[in-house]
Simulated assay, not measured.
Amino acid sequence: MAADEQACPHASVDAGAAPEPHVPPHSRIHRPVLLDRCLELLAPAISGPGAVVVDGTLGLGGHTAAMLAAHPSLTVVGIDRDPDALRRAAERLGADAGRVRFVHAIYDAIPDALVQADVDSVDGFLFDLGVSSLQLDEDDRGFSYARDAPLDMRMDTSRGITAADVLNTYSHGDLTRVLRTYGEEKFAPRIASAILREREKAPLTSSARLVELVRDSIPAPARRTGGNPAKRTFQALRIEVNGELDALRDALPAALDAVRPGGRIVVMSYQSLEDRLVKQAFAAVTQDRTPPELPVVLPEYGPRFRLLTRGAEVAGPEEIEANPRAASVRLRAVERLGTSESGVT
């Protein structure tokens, strides 16, 4: 996903896309992004008897439903920080919900989640990063800049600071840092100044008012391209509120350690900061680290994983046309090598 795009959610929703006609929450279920490709990549690892896959971003359960349908003996550990998502996913899955071990947690808590699910070995991991359709479609969550809502943006509404807390309490320097680092917003200081002026009058609580402040802070020529000028600010606030990049930094090594030989990990990201972390983590475990001055590969320095994708895969034109919210997805996948393949003795 380009730096100025807002992250796309688990179930095919991109809050950075052009506003769509509002549909009452959950009146329709979105087809998950790159569903067929995810199934294809994970199938060799999760098709055997007793296989276990972790859906680290369960959302409304779209990917999980498809995996359960394709693999009758599969068990899914479904992790989500949003308790409402867990409840709605269980409702959607119906009878298949009995094959899912639901865990209320952030996906960086993989070791604890596996203990809670009573799982020793994992054959696959799926991460579909970003905000879910459940969260985006709920007007009172404040994730979308297309509709006015309270500035909440928490994926788990039972805990943590809100976007309003950030906007009304952070210093100019901290607001600038958040907008510049997580939104890659070059006009971050100007937007931060506008926020401070606004909150001197009254606390900032409305997403529509925030959109106006951002728009008025960005020079007119810069507003003419790149979609809604507020999308970078909303992305930055959401990442700050939910600690998304910190969670991903912890989740990736935990998944790499937990997956068995022959197991596979598939990650879909929707903005450049996340994709960069995934790329770096996968590169570190797929490279031969033998010192260059040595003539042979040392087994202990051999790669632990192999790449299953060349670079980042994207959605095809047909999928994007049917679902414009898939336009920003970037998919990467790896497979853990066996002992003989990795050279470990």
Rank of each mutant, 00 (worst) to 15 (best):
M1I: 08
D4H: 11
A11C: 13
A15Y: 15
A17M: 07
E20R: 15
P21G: 08
P24F: 15
R28K: 14
L35V: 11
D36N: 09
R37K: 10
C38T: 14
E40M: 10
L41P: 12
A43I: 10
A43N: 09
I46M: 05
A51I: 10
G56F: 09
G59A: 08
G62V: 07
H63C: 09
A65R: 12
A65W: 06
A69F: 07
S73C: 14
V76N: 03
V77M: 02
G78C: 05
D80I: 11
R81S: 13
L86Y: 04
A89H: 07
L93V: 00
L93C: 02
G94S: 07
V103P: 00
D112C: 14
A113F: 10
Q116H: 11
Q116Y: 10
A117C: 04
A117D: 01
D118Q: 14
L126H: 05
L129Q: 04
L136N: 11
D137A: 13
R141L: 09
V166C: 13
S171I: 05
D174G: 06
T176G: 01
V178S: 04
V178F: 02
R180Y: 08
K201D: 14
S207I: 04
S207H: 03
A222H: 04
T225C: 08
G227T: 07
N228I: 12
N228Q: 04
N228D: 14
P229W: 04
A230G: 02
T233G: 02
T233M: 04
T233Y: 03
F234V: 02
A236V: 00
A236W: 00
I239S: 14
E244R: 06
L245R: 07
A247C: 10
L252K: 06
D257I: 05
V266L: 02
Y270V: 01
E274K: 07
D275L: 03
A281N: 04
A283W: 10
P292E: 13
P292G: 13
E293N: 08
Y301L: 13
G302V: 06
P303A: 00
R304V: 12
L307D: 12
T309L: 03
R310I: 06
G311R: 01
E318Q: 13
I320H: 01
A322R: 14
N323C: 10
V334A: 00
V334P: 08
L337T: 05
G338S: 15
T339A: 15
S340L: 14
E341G: 07
